[in-house]
């Protein structure tokens, strides 16, 4: 019955259906690009004019009539440093235990369950917990260290998982080779596994830094919002136990309670630039890492 039907294209209902769906798919795919370009354009147009050396190196002060986020930058850097210096070894250590030591069993699945769960907990809950546990129970109050300890829990899964992925790509032959030469496990880890999985670890660290830079909810009730700059060099150390708001927290406050949108957009520009850099950094690393994997 179809024998004489031509093979050539004819419009029918299913063709029209196809075209509609194609159109929808193209619209949705372009949406994310449009949103991104819109966000970047708007933020830069509104904010880039306020970003200058003075803005980056001074502290907002009504007395001196200056507007700046130097204090917030220092706080951000300190929090990143404090968090990562603890979170990195713990996260890497956990990954090493899971991949190199532990045998599949109750403990491992419990650890993996806990890591998954941690990565699913929203930052506002970390904020509440940090405020109650580190801030009140341990008496650290609103301080950079309270914020950092809270953030450690938050970024731990990121580092553990990235390290685990990296360890998985190290060929088993390397391990057997090292053991064959009489090296102990710890020696093998130190001299072979860690160097081989370094790009993965660094990727995890950079991603974690990215999360810290963008974090606000977990910090508002733990690290607080002070924006003063430490007056002396030793002040930097005592700053650890004092309240301090990161750039992101300051953006939030500027845009809400302070109603200072120029500052908010200027911070947004700085944050977006940091996000780009972090994105490029992780991309470069994962590329490198893929190459080593192929070999």
């Amino acid at each position: 019955m179809n024998d004489n039907r031509d093979l050539s294209f004819q419009w029918n209902r299913r063709k029209i259906n196809d075209v509609i769906l194609y159109a929808l798919i193209y619209i949705c795919a372009s949406l994310s690009v449009v949103i991104l370009v819109g966000i970047i354009a708007y933020v830069f147009i509104r904010g880039v004019g306020s970003v200058n050396i003075g803005f980056l190196t001074s502290v907002t002060s009504v007395l001196k009539g200056t507007v700046g986020i130097a204090g917030n930058i220092v706080n951000t850097v300190l929090i990143i440093f404090l968090t990562m210096i603890l979170a990195t070894p713990i996260g890497v250590g956990a990954a090493i235990y899971l991949n190199e030591y532990a045998k599949p069993g109750k403990l491992v699945s419990l650890i993996e369950f806990a890591t998954e769960t941690l990565s699913g907990i929203p930052s506002i809950i970390f904020g509440l917990f940090g405020m109650m546990f580190f801030g009140q129970t341990l008496g650290m109050g609103y301080s950079l260290i309270t914020g950092s300890l809270t953030l450690i829990l938050m970024v731990l899964p990121l580092i553990t998982r990235n390290t685990q992925e990296a360890l998985k790509t190290v060929p088993d032959g390397y391990r057997q080779g090292a053991v064959g030469l009489g090296a102990g496990k710890w020696h093998t880890i130190r001299t072979i596994l860690l160097p081989c999985s370094m790009p993965g670890i660094i990727t995890g660290v950079i991603l974690a830094i990215g999360r810290i830079v963008g974090e606000s909810a977990a910090l508002l009730f733990t690290a607080g919002s002070a924006k003063a700059l430490p007056k002396t060099l030793t002040g930097i150390f005592s700053k650890i136990f004092e309240s301090g708001g990161t750039m992101t927290v300051q953006l939030y406050l500027s845009a809400t309670s302070e109603g200072d949108f120029d500052t908010a957009f200027a911070i947004a520009v700085v944050l977006l630039i940091l996000v780009f850099l972090i994105n490029i950094g992780t991309k470069k690393l994962t590329k490198k890492y893929d190459v080593t994997r192929e070999k």
Binding site: L7, S8, F9, Q10
Partner: peptide, 20 residues
């Protein structure tokens, strides 16, 4: 040529071809 019609001719709908 499928039944004397070139299946690589321009305008051929592959969905009809593959049904046959």
């Amino acid at each position: 040529l499928l039944d004397e019609k070139d299946i690589y001719a321009p305008g051929v709908d592959t969905t009809i071809l593959r049904k046959k």
